[in-house]
């Protein structure tokens, strides 16, 4: 199977980490710009996984889920709930924040502060757990999907609000995994979140979940 990631496309972080953790025989292709890989989609959609039997996965969470499932794991209700929350709430909010920071030049602390509702939901969910992970006592696809959404903007646990100690610890634990570091350096090449600028500039101005555009 072939995994396609776009240069500077932040959604690549989670699929590359999931591939390194759970997938075998996956050939990674880095595309210089957004290209149409999925034949039935009118717009280019990356990352995309070509399963080489006529089927394609074109949503990054589905790609991560597939790698996780194919290594023999099962996805429980709680993991499903994290993946859905990430797709519906976290991803739109973080994409808008990353855009505001990288393209519109807003201060990182400011845009992170605007995400406090999502971040404190994560921090509170980690409370009272014996392990640093979101589900059960081990790393699951939920950690990778949520981490991969946060990473392009956060990069370092020290960017997270001081009082969210559990969240900081979780973020650091996942970031330190060798497979996650590999995914990050493959895509970001130590360039920081500015590597996402050329990609983001071509995207429409994101609409935040509250329905207001991020500018003005």
């Amino acid at each position: 199977m072939k995994l396609f990631v776009g240069e500077g496309n932040p959604h690549g972080v989670k699929v590359l980490a999931a591939a390194a953790l759970w997938a075998e025989h996956v050939h990674i292709n880095r595309l210089q710009q957004e290209e149409k890989i999925v034949p039935f989609m009118s717009q280019p959609r990356l990352p995309a996984l070509d399963l080489e039997n006529g089927n394609y996965l074109f949503l990054s969470n589905a790609v991560c889920r597939y790698f996780y499932l194919s290594s023999g794991h099962d996805v429980c209700n709680l993991s499903n709930q994290w993946l859905e929350w990430e797709a519906v709430e976290l991803q739109p909010a973080f994409s808008a924040a990353l855009y505001a920071h990288v393209v519109q030049g807003r201060k990182k602390e400011e845009v992170i502060a605007s995400l406090s509702a999502s971040l404190s939901h994560l921090d509170q969910s980690l409370a009272g757990k014996p392990s640093p992970y979101l589900v059960k006592d081990a790393l699951t696809v939920a950690d990778i999907v949520v981490w991969g959404s946060l990473y392009p903007l956060i990069e370092d646990a020290s960017s997270l609000p001081e009082e969210m100690k559990l969240l900081k610890h979780w973020f650091q634990t996942v970031s330190q995994l060798e497979q996650c570091q590999k995914a990050v350096s493959f895509l970001m090449k130590d360039g920081g979140s500015s590597v996402f600028k050329p990609y983001l500039q071509k995207q429409p101005v994101p609409i935040t979940p509250s329905g207001k555009p991020t500018c003005n």
């Binding site: 499932l69 194919s70 519906v88």
Partner: peptide, 17 residues
Amino acid sequence: TAEEKAIVQQWLEYRIS
């Protein structure tokens, strides 16, 4: 299969998103 499960969930996400 793992593939079918991922495809089903992908379209559920597509439905919502």
